[in-house]
Amino acid sequence: MTIQCRRATVEDIEGMSRVRLTVHENKLSDPSRVTYESYRQMIDKKGAGWVCEVGGEVVGFAIVDITSANVWALFVDPAHEAKGIGRKLHDEMLAWSFDQGLQRLWLGTSPGTRAERFYRNAGWQEVGRRANGEIKFELKQQDHGPANSRAACLKH
């Protein structure tokens, strides 16, 4: 199984949406609220996205909104979890975001999930709770060191 990772384009939106709707944790309470246009705005106007593919099929993606310094999405198809895909996407997204001049990023995720453990293990710090009950995490550029270096398979 060869994993190919690259910057996302609007042609990847269908695959990203499919992955987003297959996850078992942090499910969308109302899937109709995240539209094609939502994805397009994020990857074309507000930030950038990355995808990893297996056999030409999107199996994971990450999107950062640099206008609000927020990790908008990082999801891996459940059939492809625990293969390093999430970490590759995470590291590339952080490297790109900090290269853009951001000093910190934030995200929210549900407590007691694999995502919570993933972010804690990646060095994110809990800074509070959001109104919806999610844990609010933050990562500062200075805390993103060599141990969190850019994924080798991804290119700008």
Score class of each variant (00 low, 15 high):
C5K: 08
L154C: 13
R130F: 04
A62S: 15
G60V: 11
W106P: 00
Q4H: 15
M1N: 15
I66L: 06
K155E: 15
I13G: 05
G56M: 13
L105D: 00
G112Y: 05
G84R: 09
E134T: 03
W96H: 06
G108L: 05
G108T: 14
T22N: 13
Q125D: 10
S110I: 06
I63T: 08
G55L: 02
A8P: 00
R114Y: 02
Q103H: 04
E138Y: 05
H24N: 08
R33N: 14
K46V: 06
L154N: 00
P31K: 05
F98G: 01
R114P: 03
I43N: 07
M1S: 12
A82V: 04
R87T: 15
D77P: 10
W72C: 08
R20G: 03
E134S: 10
L89H: 03
A79T: 04
L107V: 01
Q125V: 14
G123A: 13
M93Q: 07
W106A: 10
L21Q: 11
L102N: 02
A115K: 01
V23C: 08
A147I: 12
Q103M: 03
L21R: 12
R20M: 09
S29R: 15
S38I: 00
G55F: 01
R87F: 00
V23S: 10
A115C: 10
V19F: 08
T109C: 12
G47W: 01
F98N: 06
E11M: 05
L107D: 05
N121M: 10
M16S: 04
K140H: 10
E14L: 06
E37D: 12
I85W: 02
V34W: 04
C5H: 09
V127A: 13
L139Q: 14
H144W: 14
A48T: 09
L154A: 09
L94D: 02
G49H: 03
A69L: 00
S32Q: 13
Q142D: 15
M93T: 14
A73G: 06
T9P: 08
A131G: 07
R130Y: 04
W72A: 15
D91G: 09
L154M: 14
N70W: 07
E92W: 09
H156L: 11
A152H: 10
K27S: 00
G112P: 08
A73L: 00
Q41Y: 11
T109P: 00
Q41I: 07
R40Q: 13
I85T: 06
A151K: 11
T9E: 11
W124Y: 11
G60F: 02
I85N: 04
I43W: 00
K136G: 06
K45H: 09
W96F: 11
G84N: 15
S17P: 02
K136R: 15
L28G: 04
W96S: 08
D44F: 04
G84W: 12
L102G: 01
L21I: 01
Y119R: 03
S38W: 07
E25M: 08
A122V: 05
G56N: 15
V71W: 11
L139K: 13
G47N: 04
L74W: 03
E14W: 02
K155C: 11
V10W: 01
P31M: 14
L102Y: 06
M16Y: 12
S38F: 00
G15P: 00
W96Y: 10
L102P: 02
K155P: 01
T35I: 05
V71A: 07
E134I: 05
N70H: 15
R40L: 06
E53A: 09
T67V: 10
A131K: 07
N148K: 11
V23F: 08
T2R: 07
R18G: 02
A69T: 00
